[in-house]
Amino acid sequence: MPKTILVFAESRDGALRRVALEALGAARRLAGKDGAVHAVLACSGGAAEEAAALLARGADVVHIADDPSLRAYAPEACIAALGAAMDAVRPDALLLGHTAMGRELAPRVAAAHGAGHIADVTAIEASDDGGDVGFIRPLFAGKAFERRSFTPGAPWVITVRPNNLPAAEPVEAAERKGTVQALPFTVPPLYTAVRSLVRRTGGQLDLAEADVVVSGGRGVRSAAGFEPLQALAAALGGAVGASRGACDAGYCDYALQIGQTGKVVTPQLYIACGISGAIQHLAGMSQSRVIVAINKDPDAPIFGVADYGIVGDLFEAVPLLTAELQRVRS
């Protein structure tokens, strides 16, 4: 059965986030060939480039909510814009990224529209004959998984984990038939006054969306000890992460922490340097596609999840790896 799907196309610093395109890809699959995919952009002062990017990847209608109340992020303004899109489109499902924003918008929009919410989805089992759709999601920080489905009769709200679902493919220019519309909405009383925003991630690639993550643990021994890791990450076009051990020791900002109480990452390649592999750390990275561990202790539990292990001193191994990468590239 063809479906109508709405995607919240989250952007950040004036560009679409990759997870928005991943949600769009999932939306196209769920909608089916004869279904319709709508996307909503929330902005202040235009979003023509983002809208064009969505159309190029198969959105049928892009709704732009453009209002000064959407400049600094007040969740209630965004929720009002999303609510207006829900009322205008009446979708079977709303998809958002499981990001800081999506995580707090989805439950509220779901409750306001009597919808169900399935969060942090890492895979979708949809059959072409329109049968039951299963949403796969981790439980217990990846120590188990569940398949969840919606009960009939109410709309669906789904948040998808970044880096897990394939992004929507571009469509041939000749087949792009999508349109852009302004989305009128009533600005609600705003409760949230944003007083300041301090960037602590230093403009580095977003950890949750990075294809390669090079992480350091207590074995890195100091803030300066992170420098070889930064060089390796730069050579791989990746981002630097850390264990809580390294954060607690003050070697790096908590913004970099990966694990149960930090970020959850699922890059193509995760390189753990001087990290023992405590269960709470594994919770944040064990679903990465390929895991490399560098540790001088041959019995470190991190080797239990690693595809490739190097038993050795990270201060020796990491610079050699960077040099080798540069050698094969040139």
């Binding site: 779901a110 919808a115 169900g116 919410h117 399935i118 039951d132 299963g134 796969i136 981790p138 439980l139 990846g142 120590k143 188990a144 998984f145 569940e146 398949r147 969840r148 489905s149 919606f150 009960t151 109410a154 064990s286 895991i291 561990a293 080797f303 239990g304 999840v305 690693a306 595809d307 490739y308 292990g309 190097i310 038993v311 050795g312 001193d313 020796e316 191994a317 050699l320």
Partner: peptide
């Protein structure tokens, strides 16, 4: 309820890893 669990699954198994031998 708006959603139901239809299956509980163990994590997908990971193939055993390789230790890389040799000098650094």
């Amino acid at each position: 309820p708006r959603t139901v669990r239809t299956q509980l699954l163990p994590p997908p198994p990971r193939a055993a890893g390789k230790r890389i031998p040799g000098s650094p």
